[in-house]
Nucleic acid binder design. Structure first.
Lengths: 141, 141
DNA sequence: GACACAAGGTAATTAAGTGAGACCACAGAC
DNA sequence: GTCTGTGGTCTCACTTAATTACCTTGTGTC
């Protein structure tokens, strides 16, 4: 019934809002939208850390593990697989004495660094404000 | 020991890489970094959807529920609380006949729209490539 | 009086994500 | 001949996240 609740609160970010609202304000959201898909990927615990590590250049399995010490081999393997499946990283096996494996960003993988960096920038700028908001909220409740 | 694996693969995204690598390539990552904090927040299933909905203007509880039909009341309440705690949205109660509650983005909440939109843009541009990569991967494995 | 709506709360249940550690094959060093 | 390094896989246990279902308080409707 009613859907007159929506009016844009500021003109400055209209373009941004547009991106969220291909749909009209009152309309339901698409459950299969690519955005959800992407957020599921980068929303997990390790993907962004791995992408950030590979951003500095190709790494071998154990090199990434050294760079991110608190990741288990299991999660490292699994996250590598998921990223490879999505075409963000590539896996190359070298038939050396003990076979070594190198992971590197694909061209597609490189393109996600920019939006990711945009988020990292926001996080660094805003974490103080978030911390303060949390303290204020927790004090009241 | 060895940390000579890292060389930048392209010059174009050096600035991006910098953002990931306040740390040097071989060094471990900070487990308490604000980035992890932010990703935990926007990485959950509903936060971005709610932020996207509120981006079009203030909404009441049930208006958001209508906009995102497959969210349960419980998750809606909880996600609202979390976002409020982080200072991204504000909650206002109106003492009407049945009390109504309005949620709106705070100024801080507005600032996250841009990096989020950057990700949304990437998702829309890349989801075809990702879908193809998945199909190719799944065919082989 | 029975019903629904507003905006939730609570509890129990289920699903998903994460971690610890054992195991494997192979090579080379000691 | 045992030990270490590589890049995994496998199982079990644990911790979160998310869903379902039912309860509340107060007003208005039929």
């Amino acid at each position: 019934m009613g859907q007159g609740e929506a009016k844009v609160t500021a003109p400055a970010f209209d373009a941004t809002v547009q991106l969220f609202a291909e749909r009209q304000p009152g309309q339901p959201v698409d459950p299969q939208c690519p955005v959800r898909d992407v957020l599921d990927r980068i929303g997990d615990k390790w993907s962004t850390l791995i992408l950030g590590t590979l951003a500095t250049g190709p790494h071998r399995f154990s090199a990434v593990q050294r760079a991110i010490p608190d990741i288990s081999k299991r999660m490292l393997t699994q996250t590598f697989r998921d990223l490879e499946r999505d075409g963000l990283i590539a896996r190359t096996v070298f038939p050396t004495k003990p076979p070594s494996v190198e992971y590197r960003l694909t061209p597609l993988g490189v393109t996600i660094l920019e939006p990711l960096a945009s988020l990292v920038r926001w996080a660094n700028q805003s974490h103080a404000a978030i911390r303060d908001a949390r303290q204020a909220f927790d004090k009241v409740v």
